[in-house]
């Protein structure tokens, strides 16, 4: 075909080559600019939001704000019950979700027979990660509050958020385990390991960095959750703290706090934002700063742990 031959002839034509290169480089330039623009939009929005939050909230940030319970007087109101509640709820969430999620991930990836049932479970766990959090709240209200009669307690809240982040922990655990090369597993088996020794001594420690990433993502999400906790009946105004877990008298440890009513930072913020007085808006901004710092602190700890794990393993 002559027309096809004509096109093929340009393959060695220097002018056609130069034109082609220039054309392709123009597209490249276009996408670099587009990328920069997208990045700028995302970053500027974030900078604007965070600086606005800080400008509004900073005047209120002082020791008293930290150590006072909420009050109808915005000047007197603080976030003591909210941040204590957040920490206790997240603690319960972590204690429940981390071992359950890792164990389920190990079972599904290393032990479960590979068949249609496993595929079915896998698809459903992935879907669960995308279920709206309010649905978890309804489930928890029906199960933990009404059937198990745990009440509107820290325990209920912790379990609810644990259910919420469990799919994330399971999925990232599985992915991290799967990323360990088969050669390492075979090497462990070849020296006479049982399957559990192979997992506990090799696959699990080597994949801890990735698993921690899943935990970070899950916990960060749990800290900011509001809807499911309102559903199960978190209070919006609470002025007393749960009984402290460490006591001065024997047996020194008390678990009464898990049955205590509670509020958390995002609910306290929501409560203040919905008030008409301007002064409460400042309080909400200040609480927002604390929430951000809390999230960063949790993430920071996890990132540090991940760094330590990765450092001890040299591939």
């Amino acid at each position: 075909m002559p027309s096809q031959q004509k096109i093929l002839n340009t393959l060695r034509n220097p002018i056609a080559i130069a034109a082609s290169i220039q054309n392709r480089k123009r597209w490249e330039q276009f996408f670099i600019v587009l990328g920069w623009f997208s990045l700028l939009v995302a970053l500027l929005t974030l900078v604007f939001l965070v600086s606005d939050l800080f400008l509004r909230g900073l005047p209120m940030l002082n020791w008293k704000f930290f150590t006072s319970p909420p009050s109808s007087d915005p000047e007197e109101a603080g976030i003591l019950t909210a941040w204590v509640g957040s920490l206790l709820v997240i603690f319960v969430t972590a204690v429940v979700a981390i071992p359950l999620g890792i164990a389920a991930g190990i079972y599904l990836e290393e032990y479960a027979p590979k068949n249609w049932l496993l595929d079915f479970i896998e698809v459903n766990i992935t879907n669960l990660a995308g279920v709206p959090s309010i649905i978890y709240g309804l489930l928890a209200l029906g199960f933990f509050v009404y059937i198990l009669k745990w009440g509107e307690s820290i325990l209920t809240a912790g379990f609810t958020l644990a259910l919420l982040i469990l799919p994330v922990v399971i999925v990232t655990t599985r992915e991290s385990l799967r990323a360990i090369p088969q050669g390492i597993r075979e090497a462990a088996y070849a020296v006479g390991s049982s399957r559990w020794q192979m997992i506990a001594d090799h696959v699990l420690p080597y994949s801890m960095g990735g698993i921690l990433t899943g935990i970070i993502v899950g916990i960060s999400r749990a800290i900011g959750e509001t809807a499911p906790l309102i559903t199960i009946g978190a209070l919006t105004f609470i002025t007393f703290l749960p009984e402290p877990p460490i006591q001065s008298e024997f047996p020194y440890i008390s678990f009464k706090w898990i049955w205590a009513p509670f509020t958390v930072l995002p609910i306290q913020m929501f409560n203040w934002v919905s008030r008409p007085q301007e002064a409460f808006q400042v309080n909400a901004a200040a609480a927002g700063i604390i929430l951000l710092v809390l999230t960063l602190a949790v993430n920071g700890t996890a990132i540090y742990l991940r760094y330590r794990f990765r450092k001890s393993i040299k591939w």
């Binding site: 090369p181 050669g183 390492i184 090799h202």
Partner: peptide
């Protein structure tokens, strides 16, 4: 029965 593999696979 020990084994040495095609690709060296020391544990990390």
């Amino acid at each position: 029965i020990g084994m040495v593999f095609q690709k060296p696979n020391p544990f990390p």
